[in-house]
Design a protein around this nucleic acid. Structure first.
Lengths: 144, 144
DNA sequence: CACAATTCAGTTGTGCACAACTTACAGGCC
DNA sequence: GGCCTGTAAGTTGTGCACAACTGAATTGTG
C-alpha cells in the first residue's frame, strides 16, 4: 500500500509558500528603493560592514558566485555599490558601498516592520519561528 | 538614529534560507526521479486527483501560467503528463497523468521522510512549524 | 443575436539559483 | 626559478518566479 505523499502535509511546501509570500509582501516596498529581494539581502550585509569580497557575501547569504556576480553588476549599474579589484590579492573583488548605497540604508529602516505587521503572528511567535527556522537550516546543511 | 535592519534578525531571510536548504536536500533524491522540486509539487497535486486544469494547479501551488506552462511542457516531454485541450471549453488544457507519471508516485513515497530525518527537529516541532507557516502564508496573502 | 467584458493558457523579458566550467592569481614544493 | 595545487570571481546553460502582454474562447448584457 504505497501512498503518495500529500501536498498539504509537506513542511517543504509550507516553507516554499511562506518564503514566496514573504518576498511578495516585500516586493512593492523594495520596488520603491529600486531593489529586488536578493539585492536587498546583499545591501543588508554591506550595511553591517564593508567592503566585503564576493565569497564573503556568498558565505553570509548561502549564494555562490554564479548568482552574486551578475547581481553585483546590477547593483553597480544602479549606483549602489562599486567593485574594485583588491591590490593585495588580485583574485579578490572588494564590494564597496557608494554614498547612494549608504543612503539607502535609512530608507530601508522600516521594512522588516511591514512583514511583522502583515504576518498575523505575535512577536514571540515570530521570534520562535525565526529560531526554529535557523535550527532547521543548520541541520539541513549539516545533513549533506 | 535610523538603524539599518540586521540580516540575522530577519524572519524573511530565515524563511528564504530554510526553503532553499530544504529543496537542496530534496534535489539529489528528485534527481533520481528526473524531477525538479517545482515539478515534484505539480506531480503531488496530480497524484491526489487528475486531470487538472492549469489554473487549477496554479491555485493549489500559488503559481501562474507563466511558470506552469513551460514547466508542464517539460513534464510532458519527460513523459509524465499529457496536455489535452478540453472539449467542452476550448480555452482549458487538461493535464493528465501518463502511466509513467502514475508509476512515479510509488517511487516518491519515502521522500518527505528524508526531510524529516534531515531536519533535526522532533515530529511535534515539525508539525507546529508547518502549522505556523500555514498561518503565516495565509496572513501574508490576505495583507495585499 | 451582437458585442463587450472576462477567463484561460501561453509568450516574452528580467532576475534569481545552481551546476559545471573557465580564467586568473596566489602560495607551497621541488 | 618552474611547477602544482588550491582558490577567487566570472561565464554558460537550465529551470524556475513573476510581471506584462497576447490571442483565443466563453459569458454576460443590451
Amino acid at each position: 500500500m504505497t501512498e503518495a505523499p500529500r501536498l498539504d502535509r509537506q513542511v517543504c511546501f509550507a516553507l516554499y509558500s511562506a518564503s514566496r509570500a514573504a518576498t511578495a509582501v516585500y516586493r512593492p516596498i523594495l520596488d520603491d528603493l529600486g531593489l529586488t529581494y536578493p539585492q536587498y539581502l546583499v545591501m543588508l550585509v554591506l550595511w553591517e560592514s564593508e567592503p566585503r569580497g564576493v565569497k564573503d557575501l556568498g558565505e553570509e547569504l548561502g549564494l555562490d558566485s554564479g548568482t552574486l556576480s551578475p547581481l553585483l553588476k546590477r547593483l553597480e549599474a544602479l549606483g549602489f555599490v562599486e567593485r574594485r579589484r583588491s591590490g593585495e590579492d588580485e583574485r579578490r573583488v572588494a564590494i564597496h558601498l557608494t554614498p547612494a548605497g549608504r543612503d539607502l540604508s535609512g530608507k530601508a529602516t522600516g521594512i522588516p516592520q511591514h512583514l511583522a505587521d502583515a504576518a498575523g503572528l505575535s512577536a514571540e511567535e515570530l521570534e520562535q519561528l525565526r529560531t526554529t527556522l535557523g535550527r532547521l537550516t543548520e541541520a539541513l546543511h549539516r545533513s549533506h
